[in-house]
Design a protein around this nucleic acid. Structure first.
Length: 267
DNA sequence: ATGACGGATCTAATCCGA
């Protein structure tokens, strides 16, 4: 079976354990990276994943907010979290696994949302976000001579067609120039490949998140591409497909983010 | 008008998301 990796901001893994089960049953990714699990490690619904064969679990949670987890059918090693911006938040977990006979690093991120006002002086949350992205610039797509994959809710929609209206969102946190330039700097300096954009032309609108506040999310379709899968060039060459599960936004009690799944021509 | 919803928490009103 080819290697497949999914990422999903689940917005409470306990509340949506049933939806996670649906995703894993219907799409069977080898590895699932979750963000915003919103629980402590001992509250993580491990049994739900064990039952489906995802017995390797790297969980980095905290009470009520944030939290990331990587669950896998393949053994995970070198589990490690970096405390970006030294805030004590649970926004990153790194693991390592084997595919195609080689070791691959996998980073799972939940980048801070950044609050309402795009001014780091007046808004400490925006300052935190910018510092977080700054620290990500040190990440290289090849590390310890292994190729890496970086996924998660990066909370930034970098390109014009990653939002429903480029012009109207230029001053809205997630699409301001200081953020989009910062994220593209992370991408370029680390020699990463943006796998969604490798598969979908730049002219085409692509979203992975739709607000809960819209009267009808599908009808207004005012989304943003906040969730990403990046990889080292040698893995990008092996990309077979990338799927954005838009239909998951319409599931009962849906997360406001949808899963993204990348499949690679690697065993 | 993007657009007022939805989650967790010291179960009621508050903070947070993006």
């Amino acid at each position: 079976m080819p290697l497949s990796i999914a990422t999903w901001n689940i917005n409470s893994v306990r509340l949506r354990a049933g939806l996670v089960e649906k995703l894993l049953t219907e799409h069977e990714p080898d590895i699932l990276c979750l963000q915003e699990i919103k629980c402590m490690n001992d509250q993580f619904p491990a049994k739900v994943f064990n039952k489906l064969g995802y017995v390797y679990q790297a969980v980095h949670g905290q009470k009520g907010y944030h939290g990331v987890a990587t669950v896998s059918k393949r053994p995970l090693s070198e589990i490690n979290s970096v405390d970006y911006v030294s805030m004590g938040d649970t926004r990153h977990i790194a693991t390592c696994f084997t595919a195609g006979g080689k070791m691959i690093n996998l980073h799972n991120f939940y980048v801070p949302a950044g609050g309402d006002e795009p001014d780091p002086v007046r808004n400490p949350k925006f300052d935190h976000k910018l510092k977080f992205v700054d620290e990500m610039k040190a990440l290289q797509s090849i590390d310890k001579s292994r190729p890496s994959i970086l996924v998660g809710d990066l909370n930034i929609a970098p390109y014009e067609n990653d939002v429903w209206s480029h012009k109207q969102l230029l001053k809205i946190v997630s699409h301001t120039p200081v953020e989009t330039e910062g994220l593209l700097d992370v991408l370029n300096r680390g020699d990463w490949r943006d796998l969604i954009r490798q598969h979908i032309p730049m002219e085409e609108k692509v979203y992975t998140w739709w607000s809960y506040r819209a009267r009808d999310w599908a009808e207004s379709d005012r989304g943003r591409r906040l969730d990403h899968i990046w990889s080292a060039p040698e893995l990008a060459e092996r990309l077979q497909s990338i799927d954005i599960l838009r239909e998951a936004r319409g599931w009962e009690k849906a997360s406001d983010h949808v899963p993204v799944i990348a499949r690679f021509d690697l065993d």
